[in-house]
Design a protein around this nucleic acid. Structure first.
Lengths: 248, 248
DNA sequence: GAAACTCCTTGATTCAGATCAAACGCGCGA
DNA sequence: TCGCGCGTTTGATCTGAATCAAGGAGTTTC
């Protein structure tokens, strides 16, 4: 198994390039050592399927760079993206043998992986690791349920605004650009990928994005670079006034 | 705090009326004793809100009898049910202070609760409890993501069939009526509650249920009692052929 | 530098499900 | 027994997003 990025491995928790939150939260020296000894990096190209639903999984890990998605597909080809994996997000199901969804690289991506078996053994020994994973899984559950509201009850325009809001938020916290002022970020998804996430068609996504632009809610430089002049306004469009002040 | 059902408390894991799966999986005598010492029962009437989103939670627990739902509501009143709690389902977020959703009793309901603080203390001491909870949370996450496919990509008819299938399955496993033959169960939800779960209107729910009846996929005795002559057929209607044989 | 991609936009038309509106059935308390 | 309220059904109409169809714009490939 080729390991293209071993050079990036770091022993220090603070500057660990992968930010694997499962560990960093309450790391202890000897645990980190174990984890480093079972960790490796893998790179995938945009479009590659990292894991097929039903596949045996031999690792857990997190996204270092790039974007991946969890996708479900029906026999007739209808697909729904059920999770968006951005840098620092965790992948894997400790205690489960097989993947429940396709994991697809949406952009070129680098993953930091831990071999599953030793990871689980370690988990059985260190209670706070299991607790940390539980917390992370609860976060994911919250995100999934928030998304159920988006899918079930929001209009196309609101869906787009919700997605942009989430990506903007994630991007801002990751880059620590916590100031007020306009937010700016690259859209890591094609119109089709957005449609699959939002339960829409790509045509509708295109129309609504351009409608938001026409209405001054967002600005576009090229098709993939977005500027949000007023984050509160975007959240209002998303029909979601909650925590609008989080970044301002 | 009134405790209407203390009489039902049982020390034995096997016939514990609440089936709190977090414990029963790998129970040990002294753990059970601790758990019993911090457990109490509560009853709620249909329509009562057990917990408001944002409320401080002082317990975790599971449903003994009846049905509850996790609900999210937008400022303008649109609501989406994000979780259906049937008997044996776990409620609560160990490690979290406040509820993320409204928890509403859909029918009269009995909950078995553990006081949160001591439960968490116990969790920190016993690794397999945290691991068990992690597994349960992963199950919930799977369920939520499966539901995202339903909400995002299925037609009204498929949505109804999916819901009926889930309830039928749960009902069958709970009552151990694992034989082949027609399934039969009571619908614990009003048309409106179904609509909130499926991202539809109650009129559409009504129409589609009667359409399924007209087409012989289900039979109705009264408005709330359903018979499914052919479970595979129902799953086909749900657009979900997977594991059709689970019960047959 | 043209062909062949892939991704995105835009327009015309259709249709599933929402909305608006009315009425039915059934249990329940007065 | 009579309303009365709640959940449900059913019908008529409307509409937001899907579908079908065509073209544009930016790449890679040879």
């Amino acid at each position: 198994m080729h390991n293209p990025l071993t050079a990036e491995v770091s022993q220090s928790c603070d500057d660990c390039p992968i930010r694997h939150r499962a560990v960093c939260a309450r790391c202890e020296a000897d645990e980190l050592e174990v984890l480093d000894s079972i960790k490796y990096y893998r790179a995938y190209e945009a479009g590659q399927t990292i894991l097929w639903s039903g596949d045996r999984m031999e690792f857990v890990g997190s996204v270092v760079r790039g974007v991946a998605s969890l996708t479900q597909t029906m026999e007739d080809g209808r697909t729904q993206m059920v999770g968006l994996l951005l840098p620092s997000d965790f992948v894997g199901r400790p205690g489960r043998d097989s993947a429940a969804y396709d994991v697809v690289a949406t952009t070129d991506i680098v993953m930091c992986c831990f071999r599953k078996k030793p990871f689980e053994e370690m988990m059985a020994r260190t209670p706070h690791l299991a607790q940390r994973l539980l917390e992370m899984t609860l976060d994911e559950l919250d995100a999934a349920r928030e998304w159920m509201l988006v899918l079930g009850r929001k209009t196309a325009r609101e869906k787009i605004a919700s997605l942009l809001s989430i990506i903007a938020r994630r991007d801002a916290t990751l880059n620590l650009s916590a100031g007020a002022g306009p937010l700016e970020f690259d859209l890591p998804l094609t119109r089709e990928a957005m449609a699959d996430y939002l339960g829409l068609t790509l045509e509708t996504v295109s129309r609504q994005i351009n409608a938001l632009k026409r209405d001054g809610v967002i600005e576009l430089k090229g098709k993939r670079h977005v500027t949000v002049p007023d984050f509160d306004l975007l959240n209002e469009e998303a029909g979601d006034d909650s925590d609008g002040g989080m970044l301002s």
